[in-house]
Amino acid sequence: MIDLRNVTKLYDGQQALNGITLHIEKGEMVFLTGPSGSGKTTLLRLIYRDEIVDSGDITVAGWDLRTLSPGSIPYLRRNVGVVFQDFKLLHERTVRENVELSLRIQGIPHHESRQRVLATLKLVGLAHKADAIPAKLSGGEQQRVVIARAVIGNPAVLLADEPTGNLDADTAREIMDVFKAVHAKGATVCIATHDANLYRHSGCRVFALKEGAIVP
């Protein structure tokens, strides 16, 4: 589902990623780990084509990202749900509208999306906050809105960048339960985290990054 071959990425001449090669199977759940600045976020951004590789090849859900035309990027991104570290919520819109946005972008009409939004908000435990605006929510609740928005379109791939970074242990566990539920439905899930508690007993493969390279 996700295939990286000898991927290198430079920022201002500094190597952010250096010869990364990894393969994630369809329906697999994996963790990317490593200290801050090790290249986890850069790797995820390459996968949803927010960045372009300097060398190497990336294939995601059958899309060759090296040759992907600008007009095709939106269609790739509809297949890749992303839980952003900085949330990226629209603060003038309600929780419901933020979550629904993913479906509206895909052209799913309001009457059809309404039920899906409620079901997804229930999944993340936020149905009672549907009409609140994000600024009125706690960090954990905002995180769950982002997860709801990322999974509502049933993406083939779900990427999460430090999804439990600012959360207490109980909330982090609840968030992980949501990821497991999405994974159980067949999505390929890739979670970038430096929290060893998340993956220690998960039984999932863990890719450890250090200074832009995968270390054993």
Partner: peptide, 15 residues
């Protein structure tokens, strides 16, 4: 900022 978010969610130029 809003437009950047829309793009990351898969919005086309026309959207």
């Amino acid at each position: 900022n809003e437009i950047d978010i829309l793009k990351l969610l898969g919005a086309t130029r026309w959207f």
